[in-house]
Amino acid sequence: MSQGDVANTGQVVFAIEAFKRIHPVEFQRRFLSQETRHNGRGFSQFRATHVTKGTISTAQGSSTVRIGNTTVVCGIKAEVSEPDVKAPNEGYLVTNVDLSPMCSAHFRPGAPGETAQVSSEHLHRLFKGNVVDPESLCIEAGQAVWVLSADIVFVKYDGNVLDAAVIALTAALEDLQLPKAVFDSETGVVSADRTMGQGLTLRKRLFPATFSLIDGVYLVADADDAEEQLATATVLVVLDDNGHLVNIWKRGAGNISRETISRCVDDAGVRKATLTKELQDNTQKS
């Protein structure tokens, strides 16, 4: 390749990047109108997902999940607490999603932003009862229960918070080892032997798939950050181990047809097969 060709190639790349920054919507439309995406994926194609369990030695359960360039770490700490008087034999699962400026310039320091708060709340609704049986966290009814505090920290953000968070929390719960706890009725004290652990029996595992409607026309799976900035609506589909529908959550403006929802559920079933293998095969113990 001659120096002239190299120079011309550099000018073309510079022009493309400039166009992408100045006219991001039109940049996306040029690709979408050709039935492809700026990252080369098809409309229904998800990014490669990698799951590793047991990545934090100081946590009772942990995992690291990568979806493309989005990376999240989940650590679960188990602590003894008193139960709610209205539910004396039920423990708690507390979820906290952390999206800091370290993972993306979209987020600001200080109190959790809207995305983090909404994600935390939806995770709690999804997992309480569906995945974690609160009664399985009871040590002594009316006296002591386990509180599972799940911190879901995004190390790098490139779109699709909820898929990454759901997968990470599912994997960390599968990795969880609760200390052996004994309640002394005379002293009211719980002794926990952290050298002896037992796994938590989950009611089911959750398999998420998020779809974004771009420009009100194009429905794409697993949108990256650039695509999310242009999305007018998103649909989260969650299936369980048996492929049964657990949850559909639509956010944003505009209507999405029944046919489109049905297609999302079908694509989520294909996605589930890949995630099932990842959750089964990728375990790392320190």
Rank of each mutant, 00 (worst) to 15 (best):
V237W: 09
P83M: 14
G42Q: 13
S63K: 06
A165Y: 00
S149R: 10
G269I: 07
T9I: 15
A164K: 02
L137D: 09
Q280P: 00
T276R: 12
G269S: 08
T71H: 13
D184I: 02
S62F: 11
S57V: 11
V6H: 07
N282I: 06
E228D: 09
G68H: 03
V12P: 03
T187Y: 02
I76W: 09
S257G: 09
V161H: 01
G68L: 01
G61W: 08
P109F: 04
D193Y: 03
V155Q: 14
N130L: 05
A111T: 12
G91N: 07
P88E: 15
A273D: 14
S191H: 12
F207N: 02
L93P: 03
R66N: 12
E135N: 11
F19Q: 01
V65A: 05
V161E: 01
D266M: 10
V189C: 04
G197I: 00
V13L: 12
Q34I: 02
H244L: 12
L148E: 02
A171H: 06
L178M: 06
D240A: 03
K128A: 11
L219T: 15
D98W: 07
Q284V: 14
Q143H: 13
K20E: 15
V94G: 00
K272Q: 15
V238K: 13
S119P: 03
T95E: 11
G216D: 04
P109M: 03
D281F: 12
Q28C: 09
